[in-house]
């Protein structure tokens, strides 16, 4: 029994750190990247994989319970919504004629 909880804790820690690192990288990306498109790309990564793996870590931590399925439904929702929002933002920017950043300008 102790062994399974140990494995579960280890998996929780690994997945949570993975999500946290994604959030950190994504936030640095939002602050540092040069134009709207690349910042959208960073923000979308944050929202999708970062939040998704943090929720997954919660689900693993919870074990097999009723609330775990709710968390997994949230993971599915995040995985579906994040890319859609990123797509909608980039599409709207492209439609209004926002030019992407080019290396020679900066």
């Amino acid at each position: 029994m102790i062994l399974t909880t140990d494995i579960r804790d280890a998996a929780t820690i690994v997945i949570a750190i993975f999500g946290g690192v994604f959030f950190l990288v994504g936030t640095i990306g939002i602050l540092r990247l040069p134009d709207f498109y690349s910042r959208t790309h960073a923000a979308t990564k944050c929202d999708t994989i970062g939040a998704g793996s943090l929720l997954l870590a919660l689900a693993v931590f919870n074990g097999l319970e009723a609330s775990t399925w709710k968390i997994l439904a949230l993971v599915a929702l995040v995985l579906l919504n994040g890319p859609t929002i990123g797509h909608a933002l980039a599409r709207a920017a492209h439609r209004t004629g926002l030019d992407p950043w080019h290396a020679e300008e900066g």
């Binding site: 579906l80 919504n81 859609t84 797509h87 909608a88 439609r95």
Partner: peptide, 15 residues
């Protein structure tokens, strides 16, 4: 307004 993106449209209808 510009036409709605098919991706967004599909996602809203799916959800």
């Amino acid at each position: 307004p510009p036409p709605i993106s098919p991706v967004v449209s599909f996602m809203v209808r799916l959800l």
